[in-house]
Write a protein that binds this DNA or RNA. Structure first.
Lengths: 248, 248
DNA sequence: CTCCGCTGTTCCACCATGCGGAACAATGTA
DNA sequence: TACATTGTTCCGCATGGTGGAACAGCGGAG
């Protein structure tokens, strides 16, 4: 179904470049303008894209995309209903921001957030994604990936997020070993300068890693000694979520 | 483009009934099984649906749907970046949960949430929708809709959400008049038994209503006198967001 | 003012490709 | 065992998507 494949390519291109016009999309996807325009019209009739306000010549996503997309997390057998109470408890205990991530390919995607009580916080929007090796949640996941998958991932070049320093795969393996033994991963302002975090992996009923839970805070509230307080707390909370999923 | 239209129908059906099988979808959409299955396969290759864990015979949405859907709110010229700081301030002042809604047709859709500090809270997932007349945000929007649109809306039968009591369109008009004059709408546990809320409308640069901001709390913390404290606060916050949008 | 490069849009003939009935297989229920 | 479900494969027909070409509208440069 060529036309469907094209329609979704167009939709995703609109999503990541909106507001955007016909020619621009056609150029980027290397498709005839005609084809792209036909797709856009169909997408409009389906209610997924709409002309940007005023400019009838640029396109943006509609809210319908959000409504449908938001249901994506319902799939995981009520993960949210199991996770949220645990997250609430964890937030009360730490007073910091708690994030719930799911893995999607080689990215971690934020699917739920309970923000901290203390004033200084970092704001991450739902649906935001980051490469696995850049974030504590991702490292927690990497540490529990099947050997073959991990090897494949480490073949890709990796850099730290902030200072674009390259990461040595062997160093990463060592870090992952440590994460596996102590039960949680850390990220001390390595991805974004003002955010530190500790994270622990969550497993589904088949005992495969599916995501991670994290505690985020400004670096001054999450130093290495501090992370040893929070570390066991996330690790314990994540394990309780895993338990909950297993009982389903 | 028939095949594309069908593919999106199938996708939306999966979204609202997952996990779901071929025959069930075919029955509901009144399409041949073959057609539905072809669509599902294409959707899988596009990365939008996947077989449910274990049961290879049922389908669910993938996280990709969330990632794309989450971008839908970026369209509104940085609404989020303008709204969030105002919402933070409002939450600090009230210590209650702050919701940001956008209108989509005759529904209000939750696009951002900052949860309250106090323990008892009601949890609404992002992307959740509700009929306009059922929620305070929706009533705030209705109160500022162009006459023709309002008339059209009031022609539909309306009931309260909880006790399915019918609502008289004339009563609603009166309530909307009051909302318009005092600047905010209230919902005192009428939709869900444990949630009260006050809401105020947000306008775009063309001065058309696009959404609303609300403060939610359990009824005991948001009684009629209390709502007169919070009322002006939401109303003021919403106006500041509107101002921000106008400057863009 | 005119030209040029860029937009988005319309038209149309060809033929790839999606359509869907029928027939099959793999379940689990009476 | 019989039956009513489910999901899956196959294939011939004609529908409808494809994409080149040609047109129109806009804005900036010379």
């Amino acid at each position: 179904m060529k036309s469907v494949r094209i329609a979704f390519l167009v939709l995703e291109d609109v999503a990541s470049h909106q507001p955007v016009g016909v020619s621009e999309i056609a150029r980027r996807l290397d498709l005839p303008k005609t084809t792209v325009q036909r797709s856009l019209n169909t997408l409009r009739h389906a209610g997924w894209v709409q002309p940007a306000e005023e400019a009838r010549t640029a396109w943006v996503l509609t809210i319908r995309a959000l409504v449908v997309g938001a249901r994506a997390t319902d799939a995981r057998a009520g993960l949210r209903s199991i996770a949220v109470p645990v997250m609430e408890e964890l937030r009360r205990a730490t007073e910091e921001t708690i994030h719930l991530f799911l893995r999607s390919g080689d990215r971690m995607v934020l699917i739920e957030r309970l923000d901290g009580i203390k004033p200084v916080r970092v704001f991450t929007a739902l649906g935001t994604g980051a490469r696995l090796h850049r974030v504590s949640s991702g490292k927690a996941v990497l540490a529990h990936l099947p050997r073959a998958e991990l090897d494949a991932y480490l073949l890709q070049p990796m850099t730290t997020g902030w200072t674009r320093a390259p990461i040595d795969p062997e160093d990463m393996r060592q870090e992952l070993d440590m994460i596996r033994t102590r039960g949680f991963a850390t990220n001390l302002a390595q991805n974004q300068p003002n955010v530190s975090a500790v994270g622990a992996a969550i497993f589904d009923a088949r005992e495969e890693v599916i995501g991670a839970l994290t505690i985020s805070a400004p670096p001054e509230r999450l130093t290495e000694p501090g992370s040893f307080d929070f570390g066991p707390m996330v690790s314990d909370a994540a394990r309780r979520i895993t338990m909950g999923l297993r009982l389903r």
